[in-house]
Nucleic acid binder design. Structure first.
Length: 1012
RNA sequence: GGGCCAUUAGCUCAGUUGGUUAGAGCACAGUCCUGAUAAGACUGGGGUCUCUGGUUCGAGUCCAGAAUGGCCCA
């Protein structure tokens, strides 16, 4: 006996019970340990930070992360899955700063780095409980009890080792380069962080500035200019960089015009005159850009007048301080980066504030003036000193205007990068930063990407491939507090650097000291660890930087194992690389990249072989979800309302994973009804009748005689098994799920519907046994196929259908083997035959509908026209199903559609197919129809009276002679269908359940009573 | 300025190497069927397959360009 299954179901309750079962019986651990000697299948979990609540997009990625390893485990792989937590970095520091009300790094240092970091450490697991609850509730099977944690000493030590490897290969260097700098956080951002913070439609000033040409330089341009003041016109959207101007750049091959504007001359690119409104003015002269190179002009702001240092490039990054000069002049240089698309064709160069500017400074040995500090405030004694640069813009513009140097001032809207965490505008700023020279292995990065299978495919050579092609060195140091410390020590006296690759190595250093217990490799404790300089007798102290937290997570493939200090066989025992990773598309430049870069640098191998790259979740209207907009969907209420399986199935099958998807609660409920409930109803149907007939799948069944219908659904089932295996092997759970969906629909709408009477017939003949066996096999196979997708429903089916009958079977579907297709059972011809039967039945029902004759009324004949001879043969083979489905006595075929248009026919046509029914209802047919009508009424009455499906009854009837005749002629049929022991003409006892009907013009009274 | 992706019914999506009249589910309206009943069947309305060119006997599908939206880079 199976556990009875009602057609109504509360999925949420069912899931909670199964969760409890998994917990009690340790199913997850056993699903792994049971395969311990098999080939490994490795998922790398991209670590989230648990300092905030998990969102619906985390459910999405966890579902996709889960489905593949579950499948692989059932395929026989050893598939341990380890949770991970990202615990370092700016996001964490920012949350704590917010709580403490800090606004700068000075606040943190005043508060104490030790106390600050202690708060960071505490904060990163604040929502751990919520994360664990969600993870367990959605059945993302991952080892939450032994996660890797990026802030643990062992993890940090592995990162140190990795950095040391790169250091020894000469791939770590300190560069003096322009980097995107966040003035609020006081640190540089890596390019992948910058990528996270671009904002369109940012308003900025757009100003055209006049630079006065030195009179002594005028003759280099033309002899005619001596009578008026001459200016170069340059354009910028960052007026605050103008005090740092030390050169102007022109395009050597383009034409520049000297335009007479009032009592002055303006020099600018000829083709851009229209942009600034100098179209009709008199042009004095046209000259090549190259002729302007070397012309001198007056600085807008002589730094020496404002107490700001002026330095000059010597060679490469070396800068030498210059003597103050009252008559400072700068010069025009020719470069290849001047755009003729915007501005005035003359570019203002401030080497302190732009990458190309800096490079121009190096190559042309320009001056270097930086009047802005790391907080983004103007230093010195300018009228606008002390202000934040963006606030100083308008003062600078006003100042220049007063001095007659402003030509034009407007606003523009463009895309500008902001800090991805704190939203401050980023400043491009020349600073000392530590780099990893990823460009040295660019070819290897690209080559190793060849070995990775991306889904969707276009990411491989699109997003990700492009990113690798345009690779720049990884600026990986951060001037912050809560992070993996950069393991570089520097001698206080001789400035010698040394990189440390592990704790033992550090402890063995001569003069090592400062160690406190318990060991904590974070600041400020790590800053107290010192040793003797091997060169001089100075003290080696750690430099203050920490590293980019993307390095932490990107090193997880070694650091989670404390490699190489432990698990020395990591590279060869199957734990590296990952078979599979899965994150959203924003990780192309985040985790996907940091994993790839670090593994290429360390081992010259990719660290993952297959990736599913998910699109983002948008709200129902297609807008991005954000706390600010208030359109964020919380996973909790969705799970409570629809259950985890519904949410999982929706995520896995409703949209292709690579696309952005609109979140639709309505679709979740549709999925639940359409798919889960349909399957549940089939299951409930099966169990109900199987229990009545005491069907036991474990008993010896002898030779079965499967019907055509049975052979068809078994063919479809085996095809499905093959398709699902294939799709999952190809990392396409969406396709696999959709195939299952369509099978369940066929099973319910054709197999079960066509087979209902086979289960209901009271004789226990072999056909009935074949039907039970077939449907049983379908459901059991489905439960296994569905296990990776809807692990709860799958478990429910499996438990009741398999465990109850086969005590020796594994006690969870997740411990079972994934089904393998029996290709011999796949019958393509039968599949096509049945498709035709469904098609013809559909047309036949349409013809009935047009004629207004209900299906319950038998008809003499249907006539069919088909498109080919082979279809006619096909039809012969499955005729019986159509005859039964359409409730007709015979089925004929004709050669062309024309023959269907005879008198007495009602036709329905579609795409070359035609079905006609003979509409004449003979007295015999009418009587039979009446009998079926009576059966229908009696069935409804049985139910209304509250009888059980298997109860036997006595039926009483009263009517005219015609009714009695029908009752007599169709007595056996009526008794069998309604489980009536007797059909008695006459009035039933008082209190018997009875109804009056008018059937085919006859008054009938029917009554039913249960037989004990 | 550049790159990637998307655009098929009101919504969510299919649509094979180009080949009859472009499909499904949901939603809407009506009819029917039903001891699986919170299902199911049939009918109907709903499409300039985003647009413009091109290749072809033939284009939702291939090519070029554009538009809109999303993501990314500079």
């Amino acid at each position: 006996m199976f556990k009875p299954v009602a057609s109504r179901v509360n999925f949420t309750q069912m899931e909670e019970a199964i969760l409890e079962y998994w917990r009690q019986n340790n199913i997850f651990a056993r699903s792994i340990e049971g395969r311990k000697n098999a080939t490994r299948f490795v998922l790398y979990e991209g670590p989230p930070t648990a300092n905030g609540s998990p969102g619906i997009h985390h459910v999405l990625s966890r579902v996709f992360k889960d489905v593949i390893p579950r499948y692989k485990a059932m395929k026989g792989y050893y598939a341990p899955r380890i949770a991970g937590w990202d615990t370092h970095g700016l996001p964490v520091e920012l949350e704590v700063e917010k709580e403490l009300g800090f606004s700068s790094k000075a606040d943190i240092e005043k508060y104490g780095i030790d106390r600050f970091n202690a708060r960071c450490r505490e904060s990163v697991f604040r929502y751990l409980e919520e994360w664990n609850t969600m993870t367990e509730r959605i059945a993302f099977w991952v080892d939450l009890e032994h996660p890797y944690i990026t802030m643990e000493n062992s993890y940090i030590e592995s990162c140190w080792w990795a950095i040391k490897q790169m250091w020894d290969k000469g791939l770590v260097y300190k560069g003096y380069r322009v980097t995107p700098h966040c003035p609020r956080c006081g640190t540089s951002l890596s390019s992948h962080e910058v990528a996270l913070g671009y904002k369109d439609n940012t308003e900025d000033p757009s100003v055209y500035i006049k630079f006065r040409v030195e009179p002594f330089s005028l003759t280099k341009i033309s002899d005619k200019l001596a009578d008026k003041a001459v200016y170069f016109l340059a354009w910028t959207t960052t007026p605050w960089t103008l005090p740092g101007n030390t050169a102007l750049a022109v395009a050597p091959d383009d034409e520049y015009a000297v335009v007479e504007v009032g009592d002055e001359y303006i020099i600018m690119a000829d083709e851009l005159r229209e942009r600034v409104g100098l179209v009709d003015d008199k042009i004095l002269e046209k000259i090549k850009g190259s002729q302007l190179a070397g012309v001198y002009y007056e600085p807008l702001f002589n730094p020496h007048n404002y107490g700001v240092e002026r330095r000059r490039f010597q060679s490469q990054s070396e800068l030498a301080v210059q003597e103050p000069s009252k008559d400072l002049t700068y010069r025009v240089i020719a470069t290849d980066f001047v755009s003729m698309e915007e501005g005035a064709g003359i570019v203002h160069i401030a080497p302190a504030f732009g990458e190309v500017d800096y490079e121009a400074g190096m190559s042309d040995l320009l001056d270097f003036v930086n009047p802005v500090d790391l907080q983004g405030k103007i230093i010195g004694s300018y009228p606008f000193s002390g202000k934040f640069v963006k606030d100083a813009d308008k003062d600078i513009i006003a100042d220049l205007d007063r001095r007659g140097l402003l030509f034009r001032s407007e606003k523009i809207h463009h895309t500008y990068p902001f800090c991805w965490r704190c939203d401050s505008p980023l400043l491009y700023y020349a600073k000392e930063t530590w780099y990893i020279k990823t460009t040295a292995v660019k070819d290897r990065l690209i080559a190793n990407n060849e070995e990775i299978n991306w889904y969707p495919q276009h990411i491989k050579y699109g997003r990700f491939g492009d990113w690798l092609q345009n690779n720049v060195d990884w600026a990986f140091s951060r001037e912050r507090y809560w992070g993996t410390p950069l393991p570089v020590w520097q001698c206080e006296s001789c400035a010698n650097y040394e990189c440390i690759g592990g704790l033992e190595e550090l402890k063995k250093k001569p003069g090592f000291g400062g160690l406190k217990e318990p060991l904590d490799l974070h600041r400020p404790y790590v800053d107290e660890l010192i040793f003797d300089c091997p060169g001089c007798q100075g003290k080696m102290k750690r430099i203050t930087e920490v590293i980019d937290c993307w390095f932490d997570s990107g090193a997880m493939f070694i650091a989670q194992w404390h490699y190489p200090f432990e698990n020395e066989t990591l590279l060869s025992d199957g734990r590296f690389p990952a078979d599979y990773i899965c994150e959203a598309v924003d990780q192309t430049r985040g985790w996907f990249y940091s994993l790839h870069a670090i593994s290429t640098l360390l081992f010259d191998r990719p660290s993952y072989e297959n990736v599913i790259c998910l699109g983002h979740i948008l709200d129902a209207r297609g807008d991005k979800m954000s706390k600010a907009r208030g359109n964020v969907v919380e996973p909790g209420p969705m799970l409570d309302k629809y259950g985890a399986d519904a949410l999982r199935w929706y995520f896995l099958t409703a949209n292709p994973p690579g696309n952005a998807r609109r979140f639709s609660e309505q679709l979740i409920s549709e999925v639940a009804r359409q798919f889960l409930l349909t399957l549940w109803n089939v299951y409930s149907f099966f169990v109900t009748y199987a229990n009545i007939d005491k069907f036991n799948p474990a008993s010896e069944m002898g030779k079965l005689e499967p019907s055509v219908l049975d052979r068809w659904i078994m063919s479809e089932l085996n095809q499905l098994v093959a398709d699902v295996n294939n799709a999952l092997e190809n990392y396409n759970p969406t396709e696999a799920g959709r195939k299952i969906e369509s099978f369940v629909s066929d099973l319910s709408k054709w197999y079960v519907r066509r087979s209902r009477r086979r289960f209901w017939k009271s004789e226990n003949d072999s056909d009935k046994l074949a039907a039970y066996t077939t449907l049983y096999r379908c459901l059991v196979t489905l439960s296994k196929l569905l296990a990776p997708f809807t692990p709860f429903l799958a478990e429910e089916l499996y438990h009741n259908l398999v465990c109850s009958a086969f005590p020796e079977a594994p006690d969870s579907v997740h411990l079972a083997d994934f089904p393998i297709a029996d290709k011999d059972k796949i019958d393509k011809r039968l599949s096509a035959d049945t498709r035709l039967a469904i098609k013809i039945s559909s047309l036949g029902r349409a013809a009935r509908s047009k004629a207004g004759i209900k299906v319950r009324q038998p008809l003499a004949r249907a006539v069919v026209s088909l498109t080919s001879k082979s279809e006619r043969q096909s039809l012969e083979r499955i005729k019986a199903q159509i005859i039964d489905e359409l409730n007709i006595k015979e089925l004929k075929t004709v050669d062309n559609e024309g023959e269907l248009e005879s008198a007495g026919y009602q036709v329905s046509l579609e795409a070359g197919y035609g079905v006609a029914i003979v509409t004449e209802i003979t007295p015999e047919l009418a009587a039979e129809g009446l009998a079926r009508d009576i059966v229908h009424r009696l069935q409804t009455m049985r139910r209304s009276a509250g009888f059980d499906i298997a109860d036997y009854i006595t039926t009483y009837y009263q009517g005219g002679a015609y009714i009695k005749q029908v009752m007599d002629n169709f007595g056996d049929y009526i008794r069998q269908e309604t489980l009536s022991r007797e059909l008695i003409e006459g009035i039933a006892d008082e209190g018997t359940f009875s109804e009056k009907y008018k059937l085919a013009g006859n008054e009938v009274t029917l009554a039913v009573t249960r037989v004990d």
